[in-house]
């Protein structure tokens, strides 16, 4: 059985005090809690501060391109559906550059866990607006303030009928760990949007700002009630709900693709040249 220490990786290069540290802690603890060994899981990440996470823990890692975590993760899972696959991305990464993949990953319902470190800003490129930045936020690239409506990933996911939609907060570490474990145990695509402050560039959404707003959803909420989920999802202002917002369990893509449904993972299925060769007959 692995312990949290088995998931210790390299020394993080994040700013001291960054919300990412708590996310990393929750991640390692959740993996240990689930009884996973580092070599048993794959983490796919993009580019950004968030996406450096796999280097700071222990796991099989594909640290790909900015915005392209989900296609890579989807294919890995289709090739090996015995392996847990986690996609780690930033808010710019996933909702901006990779927005199209996000939409279609929810439709595919491949059993990939998507952890988005949502600091409502572009951290690595030094503080431009992200798709989730609040209106009016002044940055070097948006000197007149953000003029666009922010994207609400959680509401979007409920609207897309995504299989599992949750929001966490880096300042509530144990609850975040619980949410990560829940997402991992869920059978299907899971979005976990994780709010966390960027202490260097985001002067608006600070620890204090989140602290005053974030609350845990009460146990009486029924995540399978889509209307209730939508009401919660739309709540983002004076109060910000965290927890499992929506759940709609349905067959995953791996359970539907005939070649792999209920069978060995593709990577472990034998390849028969002789069988492939018979296809030449059709051209005679």
């Amino acid at each position: 059985m692995a312990e949290t220490v088995d998931f210790e990786g390299q020394q993080p290069a994040w700013c001291p005090g960054c919300g990412n540290f708590n996310i990393l802690k929750s991640f390692k603890a959740a993996m240990a809690e689930l009884g996973l060994q580092p070599h048993e899981l794959v983490v796919v990440s993009g580019i950004g501060q968030a996406s450096k996470l796999p280097h700071y823990t222990m796991c099989n890692t594909f640290n790909g391109l900015h915005g392209r975590t989900l296609p890579v993760a989807t294919a890995i899972r289709l090739v090996n559906h015995d392996m847990p696959v986690i996609a780690v991305a930033g808010d710019g990464d996933c909702y901006g550059e990779g927005g199209n993949h996000f939409l279609h990953a929810m439709r595919r319902n491949v059993n990939v866990k998507l952890f988005v470190h949502d600091n409502q800003i572009y951290g690595l490129t030094k503080g431009q607006a992200s798709p989730t930045s609040g209106r009016g936020m002044v940055t070097t690239a948006q000197p007149a303030g953000v003029l666009l409506e922010p994207l609400n990933p959680v509401a979007l996911a409920v609207a897309m009928d995504a299989a599992f939609v949750a929001r966490g907060y880096a300042g509530d570490r144990l609850f975040l760990q619980e949410l990560m474990a829940k997402a991992m145990r869920f059978r299907g695509f899971a979005l976990l949007d994780i709010l966390h402050p960027c202490i260097t560039f985001n002067r608006l959404n600070t620890y204090r700002w989140y602290q005053e707003r974030v609350y845990r959803i009460s146990d009486s909420h029924d995540p399978s009630d889509r209307e209730a989920a939508f009401r919660l999802a739309l709540e983002f202002g004076d109060r910000i709900p965290t927890g499992v917002i929506y759940r709609n369990e349905r067959p995953t893509l791996e359970e539907l693709v005939p070649v792999i449904a209920g069978k060995d993972p593709l990577v472990h299925q034998p390849f028969s040249r002789a069988e492939a060769e018979t296809e030449l007959k059709r051209f005679y």
Binding site: L65, H101, E279
Partner: peptide, 29 residues
């Protein structure tokens, strides 16, 4: 793909298509 051990996925765009192909290759096929 109906007769052989082959997964075929129509991607949402070509960016996804090549990243999927790369992901599949990383995973071992």
């Amino acid at each position: 793909s109906r007769r052989h051990s082959l997964v075929v996925e129509q991607a949402e765009d070509e960016i996804s298509a090549i990243n999927m192909a790369i992901g599949a290759s990383y995973a071992g096929v």
